[in-house]
Design a protein around this nucleic acid. Structure first.
Lengths: 332, 332
DNA sequence: TTGAAAGCGCTAACAT
DNA sequence: ATGTTAGCGCTTTCAA
């Protein structure tokens, strides 16, 4: 089913078919109708591959994420997919499985498809695909895990501030021994959160009793690091989990230990999502504005695709604190 | 950066470049090396668009899901993405947001990209994109929400059996008033689960005290339906949630009501996932073999792509029951 | 073994 | 207003 079949079925030239296909120039209404009918009858659909090759512009954008298993990233992907399709773009998805090499290979594959633009959340600070993206001059915005690159637009939250505020609230509630637990310092995001946490703790003169702990990429690893720390040291009065998977890990280990929340230990999580609210007590959390993140990332990329050459921007959105039942004043 | 640049840089013809690119025929080692070096130096990458147009076969497959927000579907997407990339395929992702029309438009877009194959989980029994897929003769396997179509391969679980077993276990535990809650009878999946539930309940002669309730596509809707039922009728001794979002909704409403699990009401969920295990008590659930589902769907599609013309297959995998603390014998 | 050339399905410049 | 035609970058005969 090519444009040619349609043309001969409608008794016109292929250029005319192309013209009605693209709403171009002035095709006589009668011809246009004939062509449309022919397309209908033959079940014709434009071949995007050929079209893209010729016009040298595509309606596909690439999205590369470190994973889809975290509710935060899954939600981000969902929002971005919705935005993409609502604006006539298709989404090529890559999940790097927290592996920098896979991030690179996903990006590589997308570049060879000549995507119109990309949105990527680098796996960690290395951002292995950075050079490649730059060298191909592809429009790309970094989201969430905004690395230190300064030559690409980025959209994320103010991680320092978010963690700082979270820690301060815990301190204000009376906590003196706070244990922060995160995934990996190799993730700039996480590092900023840790820094924010440590700053708040230092400001309150509590540096000696507080500590930030990193476990790794998945729940198991984080859980194990946390378990060791919990077994070999004094019980903190509050745990501040710095990502959604950390929150899950903390919940599991705390549950395992049989400590009660918030009586024995308070828990402040990150990346609010629905399951946190059905737990008893409901889990307090720092909430990232996922929808805004997606909207900003998308529109920045779109602007670039459409030729915007303004200086690189670095958007930092604010998080909000959802204070619920899992956090309270310590009992001692 | 085209094949032409590489050719002239290496002092060979474009055909030779193409040949080394595809590991074709016997190119003299010396030439091959020269070409490879040129590609390296120029940072050349094959244009998949042009390549696809010419060879009439692509390395892109489409995945259309009703949503990514459910952990079950997100996990399925992750597994499929991994399989795709590990075999050299790219993934075009569409999330239909539980809307049949969006399902159709996603499929349409993918077809116009001439994807090598598709994996789709229809939004509901209507499976609006079915005709289109058939008419284009594209290789497609239906996953999870296997509709009643018999002309497409499908991979899913034995929903009837899963729900039947779940209900029987509840009955065996002593429950006489069981309330099942699901999303929508328009989803064949869900309908089979309800049927399985009702069969088990009838066999035990409990049809009069048991009931299956459907709320809709999202947590809010299901939650509301459940709340109404809970307020206007006798409290069941057990709730059997028939999907992951139903489980979440049930958890929320039960929590809202302040009933204790499993003392007042037992809860059996569906689509086991990590958050269920950190709840106190941990939630019992029917677990779908996500990884196997993904593997079967993928390999069936791959077989079709590779020319397999064997009769349509309908794979039904078995679920397993994770019996945890949220289910126990009723207290009365 | 290597190269010249046709052409995948479409769009866009140009001719009519 | 409509048609003719030259490519987009690549693969693949086919000829040298």
């Amino acid at each position: 089913m090519t444009i040619r079949h349609v043309a001969s079925a409608a008794g016109v030239s292929i250029a005319t078919v192309s013209n009605v296909l693209n709403g171009r120039s002035s095709v006589a209404p009668e011809l246009s109708a004939r062509v449309r009918r022919a397309m209908e009858e033959l079940g014709y659909q434009r071949d995007q591959v050929a079209s893209t090759l010729r016009r040298r512009q595509t309606s596909v954008v690439g999205l590369v994420l470190p994973s889809l298993m975290s509710p935060f990233l899954a939600a981000l992907a969902t929002k971005l997919e919705g935005l993409a399709h609502s604006q006539g773009y298709q989404l090529l998805l890559g999940s790097a499985d927290e592996d920098p090499d896979q991030e690179l290979s996903r990006v590589q594959a997308m570049l060879s498809w000549r995507v119109a633009g990309m949105i990527v959340a680098p796996v960690d600070y290395r951002f292995l695909s950075h050079k490649l993206i730059r060298s191909q001059g592809i429009r790309c915005v970094i989201v969430d895990r905004t690395s230190e690159v300064d030559d690409l637009d980025s959209v994320g939250v103010d991680n320092f501030e978010a963690a700082h505020t979270g820690a301060r609230r815990l301190i204000e509630a009376g906590h003196r021994r706070i244990l922060a637990v995160g995934s990996s310092r190799a993730i700039p995001n996480m590092l900023e959160r840790i820094t924010g946490f440590e700053a708040a703790v230092s400001e309150a003169g509590l540096a000696a009793n507080c500590e930030a702990l990193c476990g790794g990429g998945d729940v198991q690893a984080i859980g194990q690091a946390l378990r060791q720390r919990l077994q070999n040291g004094p019980l903190p009065s509050a745990v501040f989990a710095l990502s959604d998977v950390s929150t899950l890990a903390a919940l599991r280990e705390l549950g395992e230990l049989g400590v009660r929340m918030p009586d024995d230990v308070s828990l402040l999580g990150f990346d609010d999502h629905e399951w946190m609210q059905v737990l008893r007590p409901p889990i307090s959390a720092v909430r990232q504005p996922i929808e805004d993140l997606a909207r900003h990332a998308w529109s920045r990329m779109l602007q670039r695709i459409e030729g915007d050459v303004s200086p690189v921007s670095r958007i930092q959105l604010a998080c909000s604190l959802q204070w619920r039942g899992s956090t309270a004043a310590p009992k001692d």
